[in-house]
Each structure stands twice: as structure tokens, then as C-alpha cells.
Simulated assay, not measured.
Amino acid sequence: MRRTGSRLTPARHDYGVSAEIGYKRDANGNRVSSKKQWQLHRLRREHRRARYGSKAERNLAHALQEIARMSSALDLPRSVVEEASQVYRQAQHRDLIRGRSIEMMAAGSLYAACRCRGLQRRPGEIGSVARCTADQLRTGYRALKVDMEIEPQIVTARTYVPRLASDCRVTSEVNARAYELADLADRDRITNGRNPAGVAAACLYLAGNERGSAKTQAEFAAAADVTVSTLRARYYELRERA
């Protein structure tokens, strides 16, 4: 006996095992009559009504749709979508959703999945496509991290350099030099207690100055989602040790 169809996935509330009723063509690709189309329409309506067995299952479906929507807007891989969906499922099983909005916990689950995989996605970046604020996202993430003992990967300045370099369209020489400076910052513990994105932006700005780039502090700060004063403080620290 062999199963056909798409694979099982936690990104669907029913793991993808439910059937879908077609519209104008049958299984052989032949067009159905207008009478049969009305029958299919009624079947689809009853199928939608019977799809969710409880209010919790309906809320789960809504949350998973939110995770898929945000992931699509951020161009995240499917593996992250499935991990975020699994995190949300576990949170619902532990009754962590009660008293909190579905959108907030869905965004927090997506951010937790990104942190566990070491992806450079800031709360503000996910919050820009979420139906909640970045502060609410952080609140949801903290609830998940404490109650579910999530262990995120450590994100260093080096992990931010390639993406910021691509966003700011710097040359390969500036990118390579910034990576060396980020490695120096990690070794000398300049990044301890500081925003790694701000350190990476300072590395790119210093590397650009050394290579004659015309990029400004404001451009790198905006790409890293930090203030210009933060970038400038990290820049002075790097310049003393470079």
C-alpha cells in the first residue's frame, strides 16, 4: 500500500491530509456540467464548515496561515516555516496562547525559529510584515523562550556582514575587509553586550572609508536598523583596534 499526494507538514493544521474539492474539471481533466459545478460548490461549502473540529483547531489554522504569510513576505525557506509552525503547536499544547493574541504568538514563533537557525532577522523586520508591533513580538518570543526553554544560536557580527553588504551594494573588497574587521571585533569581544548588527554596520563603514567608498553612516545604520550614534560608537572602538 502506497500513499500519494503531498507530504505531511506541520505547516498545515491537519498536516496536509485533508482533500480539496475541484471546480470545473474532474480527475481526468474533463470539464464538468453546470449542474455538477453547483453540486461541487455545495460540497466545498460543507467541506469548509466541517474542516475544523474545534475552535482551537480553527485558531491553529489561522496562526499557521499567518506564519506562512510572514515567511513568504520575508522570503524565508520552507524549513523555517515548518519549524515555526511546530513551535506554535507546542505553545498551544502548553496553553501559552491563552490570554495572548494569535498574531503576536505566531510572529514570536517565527522569530524563535529564525533565532534557532541563526538567521539574521531582526524583530523590527518581522514586525514590519506581522499584524502586531515589534514590542509585542518580543513579548511573545520571551514567553516562548522562558516556558519552552528555547535555545537560540548566538548571532555574531560576522553573520550580519554579507547581508548588510548586499543591501548597501558595497564592493567585494569592502565586503572582504568588513568581514576581517567583524572577525577582529568578535575575537576582541567588542561585540559583547552590543547589537551585532550595529557592529557589522560599523565594520562596513570603516572598511568603506579605507577603500574610498562614498557610503554614509546613515545608509549603513538604516540597513542595520540601528541609530547613527550607535554605529559611530562602534566605529570609534573598531578604529582604535584595527
Rank of each mutant, 00 (worst) to 15 (best):
G127M: 01
G127A: 05
S128Q: 06
V129W: 01
V129D: 05
V129L: 02
A130S: 07
A130N: 08
R131W: 12
R131K: 10
R131P: 09
C132H: 03
C132E: 06
C132M: 05
T133M: 10
T133D: 11
D135V: 14
D135H: 13
Q136N: 07
Q136I: 04
L137G: 05
G140P: 05
G140E: 14
Y141N: 02
Y141R: 02
R142L: 15
R142C: 12
R142E: 15
L144Y: 10
K145S: 15
M148I: 08
M148V: 11
M148E: 12
E149G: 06
E149A: 10
E149M: 06
E149I: 08
I150M: 06
I150Q: 04
I150C: 03
I150V: 07
E151K: 12
P152Y: 11
Q153K: 11
I154V: 15
I154H: 08
V155I: 12
T156Y: 04
T156R: 03
A157I: 09
A157D: 03
A157Y: 01
R158I: 13
R158C: 08
R158T: 11
R158K: 10
R158A: 09
R158E: 13
R158P: 08
T159K: 03
T159R: 03
T159V: 12
Y160I: 11
Y160E: 06
Y160G: 07
Y160A: 13
Y160K: 05
Y160R: 04
R163E: 08
L164V: 05
A165R: 01
A165E: 01
S166P: 05
S166T: 09
S166Q: 14
S166G: 14
D167Q: 15
D167C: 09
D167I: 15
C168Q: 04
C168E: 07
V170F: 00
T171D: 02
T171R: 02
T171W: 01
S172G: 09
V174D: 00
N175T: 08
N175L: 06
N175A: 06
N175G: 06
A176R: 04
R177K: 14
R177V: 01
A178E: 00
Y179T: 15
Y179D: 14
Y179K: 07
E180H: 09
E180A: 13
E180M: 12
L181K: 03
L181H: 02
A182Y: 02
A182W: 00
A182D: 00
D183R: 07
L184P: 04
A185M: 01
D186Q: 14
R187G: 10
D188P: 10
D188V: 15
